[in-house]
Design a binder for these strands. Structure first.
Lengths: 216, 216
DNA sequence: AAAATATCGCTATTGACATACCGATATAAA
DNA sequence: TTTATATCGGTATGTCAATAGCGATATTTT
């Protein structure tokens, strides 16, 4: 029908669309659980409080053809979005830095939904190394390169103090990591080909506290 | 998503600028600690790996006049950015949902830098209510309205399971909260005037896992 | 079978932010 | 004193995503 879409598919997904995909996916899962066989973009938009055109465009980018008056086939759409997110097969990750935040992430149920499992945890402190936190044994940093290579792990979760951020990132990169989920406040410098996704609580809080303090 | 409307009143600070302010602030603090009395936007940009023009524009928006060849007066700039973020006087917050994530946030040292202190914590589970976590006593949900009003608290931290997200948000709003730091995956619907800032781990992870799985 | 309607899919416009460019000015050097 | 230079401040351009509008099409209804 339309060869343009086919050709442009693999990397044509805008970043904001990818960010919204988990939200759509959750909604679609709920609708399937409720017995729906077809998903209308308008209904999804309504449920999520999004603009109907935006939802339609995002969903259309998944590549599944929809039918007017029926919507998109539910299962196929679910599979396509799951695949686009890379959540269709399990991803192993290592976690570096078992402080309060690292501890919480180790205990966080909910990553399974995204097919993410933390295969190993590392810490520099001898007091923590050797302990088992939420079923994961904490190993010394020296073991990191070997383990990452042996298990062919591509994702690293960085939950160390700020001053250890860059050095630990370097170690992860050297071990062959492809993506870093960065929970520190430092801006990491990594070589091309390594992807960093920042979760900076300070940045997020900044917007809130500015808005709250500005309006009074 | 539509917080632009709220902030358009006294200071028209762009949202991305506000998000970058904590990063600048950290850098400025370090430079002051190193003995600098004047801050050059070019130096800040260099240190942070940002575009020099971007840093200059962001810093200029703080409202402190700088001098050519010298830079911006360090202390004044520090004070201005701190004030713009609303971090100049202490903000009290309540935390709702003492699960693994809520637990971690209660124990997280580092909010003091942003003048945020968690004044009270609430949970629906009778098993948790009454316990003291990291020095904060966990109270029943029924106490929320009274306490929020009495302490005049404006910020709520939402770390409950997804299905409890909207109901708890409603309770916070009813109690008079002005801003919600939303760690759930649900998109909250709140009345105008209440600001929601989402920290959705699933969204963040989506970008990473998509990128990692796409390139191979 | 024909009309009505809901939904998809495409293109154009808008708007916000980042980037680039250029002039102004204060400090330092000659 | 004069010249050079680094830095600030404003204006203009480009880019990307959100929004709006319109035509196409399949399903339902009469």
């Amino acid at each position: 029908m339309n060869e343009k879409n086919q050709l442009a598919r693999p990397f044509a997904l805008p970043l904001p669309t990818i960010r919204r995909y988990p939200v759509y996916l959750r909604c679609i899962n709920e609708m399937i659980a409720a017995g729906e066989t077809h998903i209308s973009s308008a209904v999804v938009a309504e449920k999520l409080g999004l603009d109907s055109v935006l939802a339609r465009k995002d969903i259309a980018m998944a590549g599944v053809p929809g039918k007017p008056r029926r919507g998109y086939p539910a299962r196929e759409l679910q599979a396509a979005i799951t695949a686009a997110l890379g959540w269709d097969n399990s991803t192993d990750a290592v976690l570096v830095g078992v402080g309060s935040l690292g501890n919480a992430l180790l205990g966080y149920r909910g990553f399974e939904e995204q097919s993410l499992s933390i295969a190993a945890a590392f810490d520099a402190s001898p007091e923590i190394v050797g302990k088992t936190i939420h079923g994961v044994k904490v190993r010394p940093m020296a073991d990191l390169p070997r383990l990452v290579k042996r298990l062919n792990i591509r994702l690293g979760i960085l939950t160390v103090p700020n001053d250890a951020g860059q050095p630990c990132a370097d170690k992860l990169v050297a071990a062959g990591i492809r993506g870093i989920w960065n929970f520190t406040s430092v801006r990491l410098s990594v070589p091309d080909g390594v992807i960093v996704q920042n979760v900076d609580l300070a940045q997020s809080l900044a917007v809130l506290s500015h808005a709250i303090s500005a309006k009074r």
